[in-house]
Amino acid sequence: MGVHVFGKSIKHNSLVRIGLAKAIFGIGYQTAERICAKVGIYPQMRMNQLSEPQIMDLNKEISDLLVEGHLKQKINNDIRMKRDIGSYSGFRHAQGLPVRGQGTRNNAATAGKLNKLERFRV
């Protein structure tokens, strides 16, 4: 059983602040706690205890933030902009190499996976 918040199904017995942070891209533990405090959700509240108005309040608060597809689009655009202006980090992104001065003799596998001009498919 999942509880649907912002179009995401979140496990019914998870804490609200944990469930939000796990399910929604762009919301971490700190942001989730801030949202809960603003909406008036107590720290140990679980997803299945949420009432309909509280879910609507959460949706409203989350929709004011830059999350999910919009955030992914922004990240893609930022990388594209770096490439377009011809910066070094844009160049490294395009090559799939570490951006922040790390060595490449060993251990550049993560950069190879992540550093692309289009990091997220939106």
Binding site: E33, R34, C36, A37, K38, Y42, P43
Partner: peptide, 8 residues
Amino acid sequence: TKYRHHDF
């Protein structure tokens, strides 16, 4: 406490 005001 673990509780927070609206302004966190």
